[in-house]
Amino acid sequence: MKKLIKILINIICIITLIFSILSIYIKLSEYKKADEIYTELRENTSNNNSKHQELYDKNSDYRFWLKINNTNIDYPVVQGYNNDFYLTHDFYKNSLPSGSIFMDYRNNFENDKSLIVYGHYMKNKTMFGQLENYTDEAFFKENNLVEIEYKGQTYTYEIFSVYTADLINRDYLNIHFNSNDEFKDYLNYITERSVHKSDIKVDISDKIITLYTCNYEFKDARTIVHAKLISKKL
C-alpha cells in the first residue's frame, strides 16, 4: 500500500512539473510573439511624417506612438470600442494574451484634457513592466519625460505623480469633468497621492496623460503614473 501511495505521489509530482514547464513555455511564447510584432512595427515603419498613416493603414485603431526615454516603453497605441478587446489582442487584432498598449475607448486624443493609456505588466519587463521604475525616487526625478508622436508632431509630457492604487477604487481614472473646479479637485487628488513629491505644478489649463498597469504589491494592485503636457512641436 505504501509503495502504491509513493508511486501515486511521484506521478502527481511529475504531472505538476510537466504542467509548470508547459505553462512557462506558453508564457514565454506569448512574450516572444508580442516582441516580434512590436519589433516588426518599429523596424518596418518610416520614422517621418508618413509614420502615422502607415500604421493607421495597418490598423485603423492606431492612435499614436508612445515612448519613454531610459525605459523600453516604445510602442504604438491603439484604441478599441471598449477597454477589453486589446487586453487580449495584438496590434493586428489577432488573439494574444499579452494584448496591446491601448488608449481608453472614451478618449479623444485631440480634445480631451485627460488621456488614459493601459498596458499589461509583463514579467519580462516589456509593455508597461518598467512603469514600476518610477516608484524609485531617483528614477522618478531623472527620467520624467514621456513622448507621443501624433500625426507628425511630438507631444512631450512631464511626469508629476506616481503611486500604487487598487483596482476597485478607480477615482484616479477620470476623463471628463463637469466644471473647472471638478478638474482642479482631480488634479489636487492625483498630485497628493504621489509617493514622491514633485516641483511640477499642474492646473486647469493643463492637459494630462495617465499610464496604467498592474503590479504585484498586493492583490489587484495597480501602478499609476500621471504626466502633464509641456510642449508640442513638429
Rank of each mutant, 00 (worst) to 15 (best):
S50I: 14
N82W: 06
K32W: 11
E54F: 07
Y56H: 13
N82R: 09
P76Y: 05
E40D: 15
E54H: 12
N83K: 10
I73N: 00
W65R: 01
D74E: 02
I68G: 00
E30M: 02
A34M: 14
N82D: 12
H52C: 03
Y81P: 01
K27F: 14
K32E: 11
L55C: 02
A34F: 10
Y75F: 12
S60K: 13
E54I: 09
P76G: 05
T45M: 04
L28A: 01
D35E: 13
E30V: 07
D35G: 07
K67R: 05
D61R: 15
V78H: 08
I68L: 01
Y38C: 07
Y56T: 12
K51Y: 12
R63N: 06
Y75P: 03
N70R: 03
V78A: 08
N72L: 10
N69S: 13
N70C: 02
I68P: 00
V78S: 06
T71P: 05
I68S: 00
E54P: 03
Y31E: 06
N69T: 09
E54N: 08
S60I: 04
D84V: 12
N83Q: 10
I26Y: 13
K67V: 04
Q79F: 02
E43K: 15
N48G: 09
Y86N: 11
I73H: 01
K51I: 07
S29P: 11
N70P: 00
L41T: 07
Y81Q: 03
Y86A: 09
N49F: 14
R63I: 14
D90W: 02
D57P: 07
Y56Q: 10
K51R: 14
S46V: 04
D74K: 08
D84L: 10
F85H: 03
E36D: 12
L55H: 00
R42T: 04
D57L: 14
Y25I: 07
D61Q: 15
R42E: 10
Y75I: 05
E40W: 02
I68A: 02
R42Y: 04
Y31H: 07
L28K: 13
D61C: 15
K27Q: 12
H52Y: 14
V77Q: 00
W65Y: 07
S60N: 09
Y62I: 12
S29E: 15
R42N: 01
F91L: 00
L55K: 01
N72C: 05
P76R: 06
